[in-house]
């Protein structure tokens, strides 16, 4: 199963990186969203995979009766999902506001901070 998941992760990463290499903010954002999933899956797979048994202790026992799925990566991923969602929302709004202000979603056109053909810094004192 891990082998298959590793392959899946590779595909997720490849697709998200391809999207992020685009010049269009929207495609970059889509890439970022997929990238989050890819990273979560990587973490999940690295913690090894078991089928079906969730990490929950039965009511009448103090420790799990049988081998369960690894709880640690799950805990890490759970918070990661919520945070990556927050960041994604932030990026989305940022991109939207940038589009409103600059009238473009092409990163080549977004050059307020690094304008094209910028003059030399002052050469005097």
């Amino acid at each position: 199963m891990e082998t298959i998941l590793a392959f899946t992760v590779a595909v997720f990463f490849a697709v998200s990186i391809y999207l992020m290499l685009s010049k269009h903010i929207i495609r970059i954002l889509l890439g970022v969203a997929i990238f989050g999933n890819a990273v979560n899956l990587t973490l999940f797979t690295a913690g090894r995979v078991t089928r079906v048994v969730p990490p929950i202790i039965p009511v009448d026992l103090d420790t799990p009766a049988q081998a369960t799925a690894n709880p640690l990566p799950q805990a890490l991923i759970l918070t990661a999902i919520v945070i990556s969602f927050s960041i994604f929302a932030f990026l989305l709004v940022l991109a939207f506001r940038a589009y409103q202000e600059l009238g473009t979603d092409d990163t080549d056109g977004m050059r307020v901070a690094e304008p094209k053909g910028e003059e030399l810094p002052p050469l005097g004192y």
Binding site: T3, L5, A6, V9, A10, V11, F13, L21, R48, N70
Partner: peptide
């Protein structure tokens, strides 16, 4: 090509990771 190479690299790294014995102490 950049995306495919990066994806393949990350996938291979993960594959390598799951091929070493797992240390489950913490879990």
């Amino acid at each position: 090509s950049v995306a495919v190479v990066c994806g393949a690299g990350l996938g291979l790294m993960l594959l390598r990771v799951v091929q070493v014995p797992f240390d489950g102490t913490l879990s």
